[in-house]
Amino acid sequence: MAESVPRRSHPRRKPISSWPIHAVLIVAAVIMVVPFVWQILSVFKTTSEVTRIPPTIIPADFSVHSFETFFSTVPFWSMFAVSTGSLVLRVVGQVTVAALAGYAFARMPFRGSNVLFGLFIAMLMVPSQLFLIGQYQLIRDLRLLDTLPALAIPGLFSAFGTFLMRQAFLNMPKDYEEAARLDGANPFQVFWHVMLPMARPMLAALTVLTGLYSWNDLLWPLIVSPSGENRPLPVGLAGLQGQFGTDYPTLMAGALVCSIPLVIVFLVLQRQFFAGIANSGLKG
């Protein structure tokens, strides 16, 4: 299957007539970003100003009251630490476990390994809700409710990740591996020093997808943090809304502050994000 990393050079066919294309795209892009612009404008309004009819566009007196309320009622930094910590745990764990298994499934077949891989594929097709009750019980029985590991543990293992890594290793040439083996490297050394570096695009793809999923997930953290301790950002933000249901500037400020970290990461690493999604989507 062809590499699907976006290519740079692209011969334009008829450069003359590109303005209608841009006109349509600009209108669409404006519609896409209007909610964000509205959110940011509202952050600087007072609670009474946002309920005015008709609405004001530009804030009347640039109040930063919303940020003050947000930061004084919500433990943002602890939520941020929980979100980041569970993301790192989950990404590092999943990528490691999946790469090891994916490599063995691709390159070290043994009797029954295809049957075992079939079990991974079967789980890949089951929607995640089917696992929640059992995962919750396990976490509860291990007395891990309301802890950071609870957030990350199920995500350390992924049928999807294993599948992606197996695909990546299947598509690699065998020569390097055999050369290393003739030089006396053991299977782990071959994996670690020779094959893993070549799998970097897929490792990046899996990191992006797992990280995105971990950062955004609401349902699982909601279930395993019943007391509200060690809440990641989505759960804390949902709680803010329960508390300040009509204080829209504060809600918009919270939504903005909690979303900004990942947006910044995306803006810095956009090429990896796009390549990650394109790679995982079209490889299989």
Partner: peptide, 23 residues
């Protein structure tokens, strides 16, 4: 264009729900 269209993907769905509820 790709970056602009992608922004909702990297925004917390919870935050998106809050913003649209307001809209």
């Amino acid at each position: 264009y790709r970056v602009l269209f992608f922004l909702p993907v990297v925004t917390l769905p919870v935050a998106i729900g809050m913003v649209w509820r307001f809209i």
